[in-house]
Design a protein around this nucleic acid. Structure first.
Lengths: 341, 341
DNA sequence: AATTGGTTCTGAACCGTTACGGTCCTTTCA
DNA sequence: TGAAAGGACCGTAACGGTTCAGAACCAATT
C-alpha cells in the first residue's frame, strides 16, 4: 500500500493501478501524515516560538521581516512553519509539548521564559534568536550593545549630554514607568539589556552620570507607547536634548509626542530609534539598521542545515548606523551654529 | 506513564513522583507529540494554504492583516498555525499531503490550483477564503462584485467614462499585459474575476463599451507592478480620466507613475484602489475597505468551531466605500466646476 | 534437473502514545 | 467476619503508516 503511493518502482504498474483503484473505491484518503511522521521521525515542519501573542508577530514590522526571512528558508527546504501559540500571560507550556516539529526557532523571548525552557527540553535542534548565547544551541543575533554604543557616540559627538531613554519591556512583568539601574542590569530581554548597556557605557565615558538618566519602560510595543514614554521623560526633565528609543516604533511615537508639544525634530529635540523599519526610513529617522529578514533566513538555514554540526554555532549579523534627519546638535549647540542665522 | 504526565488524578502522588523521577533519570524527553497526535487523532494545528510563495504572505499588507486575524482565532483556541509551503510554480502537492493538521484554511488561490484540490481530498474540515462557494466546504469572503460596482457607480457619478484598469493576476500563467474580455471572464481568481465583472456591469450600464476599456494584468503584486501597469494603460490611451486598480498596492504604484508623468491626482487623473490598507489611507486613496483582519478571524472561527455543522456555511463580510482625495471629476468635468476658478 | 539470480509480492515488526478493561488491595458496612 | 465497593495500578491493543526480511515465482544458466 505504502509502496503504491511512494515507491512506484517497487511494484508492477499493473498492481499499482489495481491497489490505487480499490483504494479510491474504498474512499481511502491517502496516507495519514501523522502516522507517517511517527514512523519516519520527520514532521516536515519547524516551530516558531514567540513570546508575544501570536497576532503580535503580524503587527510589529521587525517581526514581520523576521518571519518573512524564516519563511523564505523554510520554503527553500520545503518544510512547513508552525506558529506555536505561547501566551505569555499563562505559564502553560503544553503548546510547546504538543508541537509536532523537527526543530524550533525561538525569537526574542525573555531568558526566563518557561516556554523557552520547555523548548530546550525537547530533543530537537533549536536556534535562538536575539537571545544570549546558551552554549548548547545555535544562535543568531546582532551586536546590540556595540550598535547602540556607536549610535550613542554619534549623539555625544553632536554634543548631547542631557538625554532620556524609552525602551521596550525588560521583563515578563508589566512595569510602565521609570527603570532603576538595577532593573536595567537584570533585564531578562537580552536585546534590551544590551542596548541599554551600550548606551550606559558610551554616556558614562562621556562623563554623564548614567544613574541620573531618565529611562522609561513600556510593556506594549507600539507607537502609543513611544508617545507616552516620551511624554513621561519630558515631564520629568523638559531639558533633555535627545530622546533615545530602543526601537523605531517607539521612536516614531516619540516624534508624535514631540510634535504635540510643539518641539521640532531635530531643531528642538533629537529622536533616535533602532531597527531600520520602512516607516522610520520614510520619516528620516536616525537609527541602527539591522537585517531582520536576513536574521530570519539565517535562523532557518541554521536549523535546516543537516550538515554535521560540531558545536553550537553562533552567528552575528552586521548592523549599520543610519544618520537621518532626526538627529542634530542640541539647541544652540555646535552643529546648530554651522547652519543657524 | 502517560498518566503521570497528563492525568495526575489517576495515580497517587507518590507513584507519579517516582515515575517522573526515573523518567528524568533515563533521559526521557516527555511524551512524543507525533505519537500522541496519531493516537488521539488531533494534531493541534490548522494549516494555511496560500497560493503565493510563503514569504509573500508577509509582504502584502492585506495578507498580513488576514494572517493576524487567523492567528488571533488560533490563539484563542490554543491551536498552532502551520504555514504550508505551496510553491505555485511546481505542481508538487506533497506538502499538502504531509501536513499534520486538523483542518485547512485556503486563502485566495486560483480555483484550478492543484494544491486546493489536494486539500479538498484530505478528510479534514476546510474553510476557503476569497474563493467561489464550492458548496461542500465553509466559505468566508466579501461581495467583491457588488463592492466594485458601487465604486464604479461613484466614478460614473463623477463623470468618468474613459477609464483604464490595472488588475492582479487572473490565472496561474504569467500574462503581463492587456487582457481580453475572454480572459477576464475565465479568470481563475474569484476575487479578480468578480471585481472586474462589477466594473464591467456598472460601466456597461453607463453606456461604456467594456470591450474597448484597456485592462492591464500584472502577475506580481507590488507597487512596481501598479506603476508599470498604469504606464501601459496611459501609453495606450493618454486620455483616460480614471485609473481603477483592483488593489491598493497597485493603486499606490499607479499614483507614483502618474506623478512621474506630471499628472496631478485627482486634478488630472483619478486613481482608485481596493482593500483599505494603512498606506492607502495615509495617501487619501479612494478605495473599498474590506475587513481583512475580521476575514482571517472569521475563517479561523469557522474552522475551529466544533459545533454541529449542518451544511457548509458561507459568510460574507461587509465592505465600505471610502471616498478619498484621489478621486474627482474628470478634467473640466462637472465636479471640477464647483470648486474651480 | 538442479542451481542461481532476479523480481514481485506478502507479512510482520515497529514507531510511542492513549484508552480501556482487568487485577489486586484496601476500606466500609451489614 | 465476609461480601461488596471503590481506588490504584498495570498490561495490552489499537492508531496508520514504513520498512525490511523472506516467500513465491519465473527465467536463465550449469
Amino acid at each position: 500500500m505504502s509502496n503504491a503511493y511512494n515507491r512506484p518502482d517497487q511494484l508492477s504498474p499493473e498492481l499499482r493501478r489495481r491497489v490505487l483503484d480499490t483504494a479510491r473505491r474504498l474512499g481511502y484518503p491517502g496516507p495519514d501524515p501523522v502516522a507517517r511522521s511517527l514512523r519516519t521521525r520527520k514532521a516536515g515542519a519547524v516551530g516558531l516560538l514567540l513570546t508575544e501573542n501570536l497576532s503580535y508577530a503580524f503587527r510589529d514590522p521587525a517581526a514581520i521581516g523576521f518571519l518573512e526571512g524564516l519563511a523564505l528558508a523554510c520554503e527553500d527546504a520545503g518544510t512547513g512553519l508552525l506558529l506555536v501559540p505561547a501566551n505569555p500571560e499563562r505559564e502553560d507550556v503544553a503548546s510547546v509539548h504538543r508541537a509536532g516539529v523537527d526543530g524550533f526557532v525561538v525569537y526574542s523571548v525573555p531568558d526566563d521564559d518557561p516556554h523557552l525552557a520547555a523548548v530546550l527540553e525537547r530533543p530537537v535542534p533549536t536556534v535562538v534568536c536575539d537571545q544570549p548565547d546558551l552554549g548548547t544551541v545555535d544562535r543568531v543575533g546582532i551586536d546590540d550593545r556595540g550598535a547602540m554604543y556607536e549610535l550613542a557616540k554619534h549623539l555625544i559627538g553632536l554634543g548631547h549630554r542631557r538625554i532620556g531613554v524609552v525602551c521596550m519591556r525588560l521583563a515578563r512583568d508589566r512595569n510602565d514607568g521609570f527603570v532603576t539601574p538595577d532593573r536595567q542590569h537584570a533585564a531578562h530581554f537580552h536585546v534590551q539589556r544590551n542596548r541599554l548597556s551600550g548606551l550606559a557605557e558610551a554616556f558614562s565615558e562621556a562623563g554623564v552620570d548614567w544613574s541620573q538618566v531618565p529611562v522609561v519602560e513600556r510593556f506594549d510595543h507600539n507607537m502609543a507607547s513611544g508617545a507616552s514614554g516620551a511624554a513621561q521623560v519630558l515631564d520629568r526633565d523638559p531639558q533633555v536634548t535627545a530622546l533615545i528609543c530602543t526601537s523605531d516604533v517607539l521612536a516614531l511615537g516619540a516624534m508624535t509626542e514631540a510634535g504635540r508639544r510643539g518641539l521640532r525634530v531635530p531643531h528642538d529635540i533629537t529622536v533616535t530609534g533602532f531597527d531600520g523599519i520602512r516607516a522610520g526610513e520614510e520619516a528620516g529617522l536616525t537609527t541602527v539598521r539591522q537585517p531582520v529578514l536576513e536574521k530570519g533566513r539565517a535562523a532557518g538555514k541554521l536549523l535546516l542545515d543537516t550538515n554535521e554540526r560540531s558545536r553550537p554555532r553562533s552567528v552575528n549579523l552586521a548592523t549599520e548606523l543610519i544618520i537621518g534627519k532626526t538627529s542634530a546638535g542640541p539647541r544652540g549647540g555646535a552643529e546648530e551654529r554651522w547652519f543657524g542665522p
